[in-house]
Amino acid sequence: MSIDWSAFTPYSALAGGALIGLAAALLALLNGRIAGIAGIIGGALNPKSGEVGWRLAFILGLLLAPAAWLLVSSLPEVRIDASYPMLILAGLVVGISTRYGAGCTSGHGVCGISRLSPRSIIATVAFMATGFLTVFVIRHLIGS
């Protein structure tokens, strides 16, 4: 393993992470809800009365975050190398499996670990492992 120190951005990573944690804390303290994005979207697709409004409001906040950012500064680079067929495959897999496994990076990785939930700790270990493995297969086994 070699660390790419030129790409390492510890301060913005920590500060951005702290804001994500703050948002998760706000949603839990003020709404009594878990800031799990896959769960919030999934619940909005499967509506029960009184359940949809806050979900759509949270999603709207996410969608408007770049606009809010642009009031202060230009947006950092967003580089997407995946082809359209790959993006469609990735989206389908993420959509099905986050609902099946009841969470994603935010619900299990941030909120669940912060709640010291054994389910979320195991889920996070599982998706990190296959995330690492998938990139290894694509970049170093197929790509080389």
């Binding site: 994005i37 896959a38 979207i41 996410l62 997407i80 995946a82 790959m86 993006l87 495959l89 990735a90 989206g91 389908l92 897999v93 993420v94 099905i96 499996s97 986050t98 609902r99 099946y100 496994g101 009841a102 969470g103 994603c104 990076t105 935010s106 299990h108 389910r119 195991i122 889920a123 996070t124 599982a126 998706f127 990190m128 492992a129 296959t130 995330g131 690492f132 493995l133 998938t134 990139v135 694509i138």
Partner: peptide
């Protein structure tokens, strides 16, 4: 099993394009 299989699958989808839902 759902938790573990779903999470394993999510990691694959995440690694394919580098996107997670948020």
């Amino acid at each position: 099993a759902r938790l573990i299989l779903g999470s394993l699958g999510f990691g694959v989808g995440w690694g394919l394009a580098g996107f997670c839902p948020g």
